[in-house]
Amino acid sequence: MSIIENHETVGSPLSEGAKLRARDVCVFYGEKQAIYNVSLDIRQNEVIALIGPSGCGKSTFLRCLNRMNDTIDICNVTGEILLDGDNIYDPRVDVVPLRATVGMVFQKPNPFPKSIYDNIAYGPRIHGLASSRVELDEIVEKSLQRAGLWNEVKDRLHAPGTGLSGGQQQRLCIARTIAVDPEVILMDEPCSALDPIATAKIEELIDELRENYTIAIVTHSMQQAARVSQRTAYFHLGQLIEVNATDKVFTTPEHQLTEAYITGRFG
């Protein structure tokens, strides 16, 4: 298989008044191109799922949205990504406030080797979000409640975060992301290291979070994409093949590659 010449994304990648707009985004790792001219709009308060076979560039694209790719020296991004109309790749943009606005949850739960409380409080502390200890306590409690972890950990807030189970750790990481009050949350296969019960809890949580946040989630599980997202974007070898409402992608995909993938012919 090779990339498709003169490909235009099918479906409806663009929409009015979107929160995040990607325009002609290309990503290069040194000489190698990983993403080809992807244009995609992410709407306010929606969950968009990015799916596709391994190595298709969906995680790379996700990491462009809060410039996590900056940490990789050889990675080079062209095109524009607009957050509320401002290009986040503008040289004048500082990544620190950007990442506070566009938070990220990673594939493997990665709590800091500190207490549960300190894990959550770290973000608010460095950004100066709380002016007093009481206020910080409130943020910690609220974040843990939103992540559905409060009842499980309220008696051991000062126990190490690494001592929690995998699913709890991942919810801790989500709570940590919520604590800095972002507008967009990026999730890079947040359930791939978790068992089905923990996965179900996280999925439930994602659904609740949609009320307040815009969420982009990369997933390998098509069932998960179907369960949590409103729209689905299908990536293939660095190209964005199709973007449509999730129902439509999984029932009547427009592009033959999408169909081949969701029916399990490859991937």
């Binding site: 996590m68 990673f106 493997k108 990481c173």
Partner: peptide, 13 residues
């Protein structure tokens, strides 16, 4: 582990 760095950077540190 790089995951610790990513976690901090992802929070806007």
């Amino acid at each position: 582990p790089p995951s610790i760095r990513e976690a901090a950077l992802g929070l806007g540190a």
